[in-house]
Nucleic acid binder design. Structure first.
Length: 831
RNA sequence: GCCGGGGUGGCGGAACGGUAGACGCGGCGGACUUAAAAUCCGCUACCUUGACCGGUGUGUGGGUUCGAUUCCCUCCCCCGGCACCA
C-alpha cells in the first residue's frame, strides 16, 4: 500500500484543505507578530536552513515539531515569534558554479524560491515579512559592520593561519573537500600552507564561555561538548635553562599539568614550527632536522593528527638543563607536540605520560619513575603510570604524595622565577577568512602608505561583485577581479587593494536571531526597541551537529557585543533542544547514494501536511530521531480520517438514545468516565507538548479518540458532553495538525480561527480516578488485582489483599512477615 | 582511546523504583461486499493449555531493594562527538 493509492480512500481532500487554509491564514495575516502586543513574548527559533535546493524530510523533522511547540505556546497566551530565513552563503553554491556554470547568486536564489514554496507547505506560523536571506547586501552589510566593531575593540586581528592546499588544483580547500587526506576533485595528496588571515579572539572569552549559569535549559550533552571543546587545563609553565648555549633565548618554556613529575623528565620535545628549532640544531644534526621539519610542514595538520599513535622526531643535538635537579636533557623535535597549544614545547616524562613513553621507547630514552604507586616493586614500568602515588627520585620532595608534591614544586618554581602557574585552553581563535567568492567581503583595505585600513562605516556595504572567476586559479576568486581589488585608501586616498577573502558563514549565523526582528531596519543590525523586547531567544531548536561551532561562536559574539555596549543580554539562546536524525526506511542515514531519501512533496500532496507532521512527531521521542515509514504514515492518515469521521457525527443523534432502555446510572457513569478521561488527556497533552514529548501527546489523543468511538457506539453520553469532548479534542490537536483541525472547526460551525483559541485547561478533581486497580503481590510477584476505591486506607487494602483467595493459594497459609503498602498502587506481601 | 546517548514483541515505541509492552504499524480471524479495496469489530511477547491456571521474559553477568526496564558495578553490541591538547 503506497501513500498514493491510499489517498482516494480518505474522507476528505487534504491537498485542497491545506491550500485553502494556508491561503486564508496568509491573507488574514494570522501569523504576523504584532509589535505592540501586551501578552508576554515568546521567541521560538528553529535553526535556519541552508538553501541546498530541496526541502528534505529532515527539514520537516526539524521544523514541523518546533512549529507545533511554537503554536502550543501561542495557544497558551504568548505573543510568539517563530521566524524563518536562509543561510545563503557558502561553498555548495560555489561548487555549483564551478561544475555547472551557474552563478552562485542564481543558484542560491532559485533554490530559495523553491524552498519557500516547500516551507509554506508545512503550514507553519512563519511570519514571512520577517524572512532574512544572508547573501543579500542588506544583511551582510551588518556582518561587515560587526567586523569593524570587533576590529575597533581589538577582537579581530590578522595572523598567519594554516589552510589546506591542493598542489594539483592550486587552490585552498575547505576541510570538507578533503577525503582521507586527498583532494576530493583530483585525488592529489593535500598539504598545508600558512596564509595571512583574519581571526576573532574567542580565546579571550574562554573562561566566560565555560560559565553556563546564564542558560536556562540546555542539554547536558551540548554543555559537555562545549566544555571539552574549550578544554581548560590548569598547570604550570616551567622553563628549562639553555643559557649555556649563548643564544638570544636563555630558556625553553614548557607547559605541564603534571609539575609533580618534573624529576622524571628525560627529554624535551619541541613542535617542528618552534622558533628555537633552528638555533638549537647542531651542525651534525641539521640535515636530518631540516628534512623532518620539511616533511611535517608538507603534511596537513588534519593528517598529522589523524596518523596512528606512532611518535616520530629528531634529536636537535643540544641539551637543556632541568633546574630542579640540574640534569642535562636532550632536546628533540617531534610532531606530536603542537605549536598551537601551550608553549609549543613539552617536557618529556616517559614514566608518567603515555605519549612520552612511546617516544622514549622509540628513541631509547630513559624511563624514570618519580611517582610510585603503593605496589611498585622498583622495576621499570611496561607502560606509563598515570595514577597517584608517592614522590620518589624527587630530591627534597621525596615521600610526599604527588598531590602535595605538585603544590610544593609549583610554589618553588614560582618563587625561583622558573615559571608560573597558568591555565591553557584547547580552544583556538576563530579563523574567519575564507579564500572563497560566495561570502561576505571582509571590509579591509591595504594601503602601501597607511597599511591595514578598515573601510569606514559610511562606505558599507562592500558589495560582492557579480563577476568572478570561479575556476581554481591559486588564489581567492575575488583576487582576479581588478575592479573590486583596486580601490582608494580611505585615509590617504592613495591607491590601495581590497582584502579578497570573504567571511566564514558562521559569522552570519552568530547574530541572525537579531535581524529577524526588523529585517528591513537600516540604521543598524536591529531595531533597538525590538531587540530590547524580544531577545534573548526563549527556545532554540536544531541539530546537535552545531554543538560547538555555531552555538559557541554565537555565545561568544553576544558576549563580545555586550562588552561593547551593543546589546544588554549575555546569552543568545536561553533554552536549547536538539532533535534527532530522521533515518531512511532501512534505518540508515538518508543519502542519495543509498537511494533512501524521502521527498516530502509527494507525500504531502497525497496525504496532506498534517499527516506528515503528525507522523514525524509520532515516530518516537523527538530528540532520538527514528526511521521514516511509508506504511507508518498511512496509519497516521487513517487516524486523521477517523478523527474526521468523529467530527462529522451529529451530536443530536445522542438525544434519541435517551429513550433507549438504558439504566440512567450506567449512563451517568459513562459521562463521568468520559469527563475524567477528557481532563486526564488535556493534562497529559499539555504537559507533553510543553516538554517536546510529541509522540506521547499524540498517543493520548488517539486513546481519547478511541474512547469517543466507544461511547458513540454505545450512545452512552449526552450531546453536551460529546460537544465538549470533540471541541477540546480539536483544540488539543490544533497545534499538531493545524489544517484539518481548522477545517473541522469551521465545518462544525465554530468561529474562525481555531488557532486563536486558548489551549484547553483541566480540573485535577475531574481528572482524579474514583477507583483504582490495587495490585496484590506475594514476594514481589503479581498474584491478584482488585478494584478498590481510590482513597482506600492502608489497613483496608491490606485486609482485602489477605482475604484474596488467589493470594491465599500462594501464601500457602504461611504467616505474612511484612506487608509493603504503596498508596494507590499495591500491597506486597512477604512470606 | 576518551566523552555522550542507546539496546524492551515481527517493527516504531510506552512505562513518578510498584500491573512491562500504552499508542501505532504489521499479522491473524470476523462483519460488510457478487468480489476486491476501503471501513468497522475482535485477537496478537514467548513457552505450556481446548480454556483458565502456571512458567519465562526489557543486550550480558552480578549487586542494592519487599519489589529493578528504571539505581550501582562488569562486560558485549549500536549511534553520535572528540581524537597526540602535554
Amino acid at each position: 500500500m503506497t501513500a498514493n493509492s491510499r489517498q482516494r480512500e480518505l474522507r476528505f481532500d487534504p491537498e485542497a484543505i491545506d491550500r485553502k487554509w494556508q491561503d486564508r491564514w496568509a491573507q488574514d495575516g494570522l501569523h504576523h507578530t504584532p509589535p505592540d502586543d501586551p501578552r508576554p513574548k515568546w521567541y521560538e527559533l528553529t535553526m535556519y536552513p541552508y538553501p541546498s535546493g530541496d526541502l528534505h524530510i529532515g527539514h520537516w523533522y526539524a521544523m514541523a515539531p518546533s512549529d507545533c511547540h511554537a503554536r502550543f505556546r501561542r495557544m497558551q497566551g504568548y505573543n510568539v515569534l517563530h521566524p524563518i530565513g536562509f543561510d545563503a552563503f557558502g561553498l555548495p553554491a560555489e561548487n555549483a558554479a564551478i561544475s555547472r556554470g551557474i552563478h552562485p547568486q542564481t543558484w542560491t536564489m532559485s533554490n530559495i524560491e523553491n524552498m519557500r514554496r516547500q516551507l509554506r507547505s508545512i503550514g507553519a506560523i512563519y511570519d514571512w515579512d520577517k524572512e532574512i536571506v544572508t547573501c543579500a547586501p542588506e544583511y551582510y552589510r551588518w556582518n561587515q559592520w560587526y567586523f569593524l566593531k570587533l576590529y575597533e575593540n581589538g577582537l579581530a586581528y590578522q595572523a598567519k593561519g594554516p589552510v589546506v592546499w591542493c598542489p594539483s588544483c592550486q587552490t585552498v580547500l575547505a576541510n570538507e573537500q578533503v577525503l582521507n587526506g586527498a583532494c576530493e576533485r583530483c585525488d592529489a595528496v593535500v598539504t598545508r600552507r600558512d596564509l595571512e588571515q583574519w581571526f576573532f579572539k574567542i580565546t579571550d572569552y574562554a573562561e566566560r564561555l565555560l560559565d553556563f549559569s546564564g542558560l536556562v535549559d540546555w542539554p547536558d550533552k551540548i554543555l559537555t561538548m562545549q566544555t571539552n571543546w574549550i578544554g581548560r587545563s590548569e598547570g604550570v609553565e616551567v622553563s628549562f635553562d639553555i643559557s649555556h648555549l649563548g643564544l638570544d633565548d636563555a630558556e625553553i618554556r614548557t607547559f605541564t599539568t603534571r609539575i609533580d613529575t618534573i624529576f622524571g623528565v628525560t627529554f624535551l620535545a619541541l613542535a617542528p614550527e618552534h622558533p628555537l628549532v633552528a638555533p638549537l640544531t647542531t651542525d651534525d644534526r641539521r640535515s636530518a632536522v631540516e628534512a623532518y621539519v620539511d616533511r611535517a610542514r608538507r603534511t596537513s595538520e588534519i593528517d598529522r593528527l589523524s596518523t596512528e599513535t606512532e611518535k616520530t622526531g629528531e634529536f636537535l643535538g643540544s641539551y637543556a638543563v632541568n633546574r630542579l635537579n640540574g640534569e642535562r636533557v636532550p632536546i628533540f623535535i617531534g610532531d606530536y607536540t603542537l605549536m598551537s597549544y601551550g608553549t609549543g614545547a613539552v617536557m618529556g616524562v616517559p614514566a608518567h605520560d603515555a605519549r612520552d613513553f612511546d617516544f622514549a621507547r622509540k628513541y631509547k630514552l630513559p624511563v624514570r619513575m618519580v611517582i610510585a604507586p603503593i605496589s611498585w616493586d622498583g622495576s621499570e614500568p611496561s607502560e606509563a603510570f598515570l595514577g597517584d602515588g608517592f614522590m620518589t627520585n624527587s630530591g627534597r620532595y621525596e615521600g610526599m604524595t604527588n598531590e602535595e608534591g605538585m603544590a610544593a614544586i609549583a610554589a618553588d618554581v614560582e618563587r625561583n622565577g622558573w615559571g608560573r602557574r597558568t591555565v591553557s585552553y584547547r580552544l583556538r581563535d576563530w579563523l574567519i577568512s575564507r579564500q572563497r567568492y560566495w561570502g561576505t567581503p571582509i571590509p579591509i583595505v591595504y594601503c602601501q602608505l597607511c597599511g591595514v585600513v578598515p573601510v569606514p562605516e559610511g562606505q558599507l556595504p562592500v558589495l560582492l561583485p557579480e563577476d568572478a572567476e570561479f575556476k581554481p586559479t591559486g588564489e581567492s576568486p575575488l583576487a582576479g577581479n581588478e575592479n573590486f581589488v583596486n580601490t582608494r585608501c580611505p585615509q590617504c586616498n592613495g591607491p590601495a587593494r581590497r582584502e579578497t577573502d570573504t567571511m566564514d558563514t558562521f559569522m552570519d549565523s552568530s547574530w541572525y536571531m537579531m535581524r529577524y526582528l526588523s529585517p528591513g531596519y537600516d540604521d543598524g543590525p536591529a531595531d533597538p526597541a525590538a531587540l530590547d523586547r524580544w531577545l534573548p531567544v526563549d527556545q532554540y531548536t536544531g541539530g546537535a551537529e552545531h554543538a560547538v561551532m555555531h552555538l559557541l561562536y554565537s555565545r561568544f559574539f553576544i558576549k563580545a557585543l555586550r562588552d561593547m555596549g551593543l546589546v544588554d543580554f549575555d546569552e543568545p539562546f536561553l533554552r536549547l533542544y536538539n532533535q534527532g536524525v530522521i533515518l531512511g526506511e532501512d534505518h540508515e542515514k538518508m543519502s542519495k547514494s543509498r537511494g533512501n531519501v524521502v521527498n516530502p512533496d509527494e507525500v504531502v500532496s497525497h496525504l496532506g501536511a498534517d499527516a506528515v507532521r503528525c507522523f514525524l512527531m509520532f515516530i518516537g521521542p523527538w530528540d532520538q530521531g527514528g526511521p521514516w515509514s511509508e506504511v507508518g504514515i498511512n496509519g497516521m492518515a487513517r487516524w486523521l480520517n477517523r478523527v474526521w469521521d468523529i467530527l462529522e457525527r451529529d451530536p443530536a443523534r445522542l438525544d434519541a438514545s435517551l429513550d433507549a432502555p438504558q439504566a440512567a446510572a450506567e449512563r451517568e457513569e459513562a459521562v463521568r468516565e468520559t469527563q475524567r478521561l477528557l481532563h486526564q488527556t488535556v493534562r497529559k497533552c499539555h504537559n507533553d507538548l510543553d516538554r517536546f514529548k510529541f509522540n506521547t501527546a499524540i498517543a493520548a489523543l488517539m486513546e481519547f479518540s478511541n474512547h469517543l468511538n466507544r461511547v458513540w457506539a454505545d450512545a452512552s453520553v449526552d450531546p453536551a458532553t460529546w460537544r465538549e469532548c470533540v471541541e477540546k479534542f480539536l483544540l488539543m490537536l490544533a497545534p499538531i495538525a493545524p489544517h484539518v483541525t481548522e477545517e473541522l472547526w469551521e465545518r462544525t460551525g465554530r468561529e474562525y480561527s481555531i488557532h486563536q483559541q486558548p489551549f484547553p485547561t483541566w480540573d485535577e478533581a475531574l481528572a482524579a480516578e474514583e477507583t483504582i486497580t490495587l495490585v496484590v503481590q506475594v514476594n514481589g510477584k503479581v498474584r491478584d488485582r482488585l478494584q478498590v476505591p481510590a482513597d482506600i486506607q492502608e489497613d483496608d487494602a491490606r485486609e482485602l489483599a489477605l482475604a484474596s483467595p488467589r493470594v491465599k493459594s500462594f501464601t500457602g497459609g504461611k504467616p505474612v512477615d511484612k506487608a509493603v503498602y504503596v498508596p494507590g498502587r499495591l500491597v506486597n506481601l512477604v512470606v
